[in-house]
Amino acid sequence: MHRILDILSSGIHDAKNQLFLAESLIAQAEAEHGLKLDEARFAIEHAASRLSRLLTAYKLQRKVGSLSIDMVSVPDLLEEAALISASHCTHLGLRLNTESPQGLGWLLDRELLLDILTNAIQNACRYARSQITLSATADEKGLTLKVEDDGPGYSEPDVETMTGNGVGLFVAAEIARMHKSGARHGKLALANGGRHGGAVFELFLP
């Protein structure tokens, strides 16, 4: 089983290296010829994160996934997640806002959370009419990260049903659950309504 995992990991590793070269060449062409090829770069990064997510999902399914917890700046996390999708949102004519308490730090797995938030924002991009808000709030119980849009909302705002439909939500639900503090663990919730009246993707981390 670990052999298969090694083969998958190294294949994905090589593919991502090549995608990085492609993205850099595009960046160079942009700089040299004054082009704007944001969507091409976005497609490359999108493909790369899908590959990583598949690998994460495989590890979770095989129960060999683990977290790397560190103290992470929450405003930076949100700002970076927004940065990854910024040009794509602009391209679609969508406003992407972030809201987070200044100076807030949290113990979490930065790379996995970035991937989960990026995926949630990109899902929101497909349905939002004009805006998406990425927000963080914290109290003594935990940290709540939300991605809200003004689209038509989830057809079925139920985590159990929805996680069967895609790798992204499956990974989000599992990774949230793996974040623990004492006896409490994180969770994923989906709802309709929220501040923009559309879909609400909500991650709670203790």
């Binding site: 290296n17 990085f20 960046a27 990064e45 790369a48 940065l83 790379e111």
Partner: peptide, 13 residues
């Protein structure tokens, strides 16, 4: 930073 990334993201970090 994990590849691939845009120059923007490298700059962010």
């Amino acid at each position: 930073i994990i590849k691939p990334f845009s120059p923007d993201r490298l700059k962010f970090r």
